Computed example of a mutant assay.
Amino acid sequence: MGQLENLSLTIRPIHDVKEFVEVSELEKIIWQSDDPVPVAHAVTSVDNGGMVIGAFLDDKIIGFQYSFAGFNGINTYLCSYLLGVHPEYRISGIGEQLKLAQCKEALKIGYDLVTWTYDPLETVNANLNIKKLGGVCSTYKENYYGEMEDSLNSGIPSDRFYVDWWIQSDHVKDKVDRVYGKLPKYQEDMAVIRVKERENEYPVPEEVNTNLTVDYEILFVPVPGEFQKIKEEDFALALEWRLQTRKVFTHYFKVGWQVSDFIRSEREENFSPVYYYVLTKKRLGQN
């Protein structure tokens, strides 16, 4: 992990063309791609309701967030397209700082909604997007980007959560301020997927239940905590997790449930980690 001690980290909006070029070069490092967002596109987006925010370490850019203006026929919102941090600094909390800076700048412009997508089986992203930032989700996109060839996505359908971040809501303000209240406690009878956990092995999704819609106000959807490792070592199991979670999310979203929180299982250390999305009937977010 990159060390930030004794160095000056600055997070601020970017407007200079030279710095847009630096963002483009950083994209190539992060995603090992020669097809970053065109500089002219970023410049035009910033001039028309979008933003690019950079994280600078002693004047060297090590992270960025890129957003553009969106409209769905009803609401105007900020569409958060890319967030990337240099590989040497990925667990330094810079991603969260970039999102909080994005929130601050979006409020200045007048937005109350920010949206983005992410893979629901990537639990590091879920912990940030849902638990820490207070994003909510009731839309599931199957194979949203089609077949992707990068190391994180290759071979697996590119399913995505579509996150709504209602940045003026009490729900988001509480999450950002770490006012979590009483956290939901996992109960097995409220889990829509039963998980088989073998010691020192990865969890396996077994029984799927799409009928838990009457008796409960809260449901739990388990996901494995090491999806990329599972994909490397047991591709069939990774695909099974994708298809089983797709089945339950698409069903429960369709009948009115919403992802509103994210918690970790209380398990012994010799079990592979399991996390739980919390589904509620109460619509959290927009006040």
Rank of each mutant, 00 (worst) to 15 (best):
F220I: 05
L219A: 07
I218W: 05
F220T: 12
R198F: 02
N209Y: 14
P205W: 09
V221L: 06
K196D: 09
T213G: 11
R198M: 11
V208P: 09
G225F: 02
E207G: 00
V204S: 10
N211R: 10
N200M: 11
V204K: 12
E199P: 01
T213Q: 14
P222N: 05
T213P: 07
V204C: 06
E217H: 04
E197R: 14
Y216A: 02
I218C: 06
F220W: 06
R198I: 13
R198E: 15
P203T: 03
P205M: 04
N211V: 01
Y216P: 01
N200C: 07
L212H: 07
E197F: 00
D215M: 02
P222S: 04
R198K: 14
N200H: 11
F220V: 06
N211H: 13
V221I: 06
P222H: 06
N211C: 05
P224I: 01
L219E: 08
P203K: 12
T213D: 15
N200G: 03
E217L: 00
G225R: 02
P203E: 09
V223T: 11
E207H: 05
P203M: 09
E206F: 01
E201G: 01
Y202S: 15
E199G: 02
Y216C: 02
V208M: 04
K196P: 02
N209H: 11
V208E: 10
N209V: 00
N200T: 00
D215R: 11
P224A: 07
N209K: 14
E206I: 04
E207C: 00
Y202K: 07
F220K: 06
V204Q: 13
E201I: 00
N211D: 12
E217F: 00
P222F: 03
L219S: 12
E201Y: 04
E199D: 13
L212S: 12
F220P: 05
E197Q: 14
N209P: 00
E197L: 06
P203Y: 04
N211E: 15
N211A: 08
P222A: 01
N211S: 14
G225L: 01
D215Q: 11
E199M: 11
T210N: 14
K196F: 01
G225Q: 03
E197P: 02
T210E: 14
V223M: 05
V204F: 12
Y202G: 08
N209G: 01
Y202T: 01
F220M: 07
E207K: 04
T213M: 07
P203C: 06
F220R: 08
E206H: 02
E197S: 15
L219T: 12
L212F: 09
P224F: 04
E199F: 07
Y202Q: 13
E206Q: 07
Y216R: 04
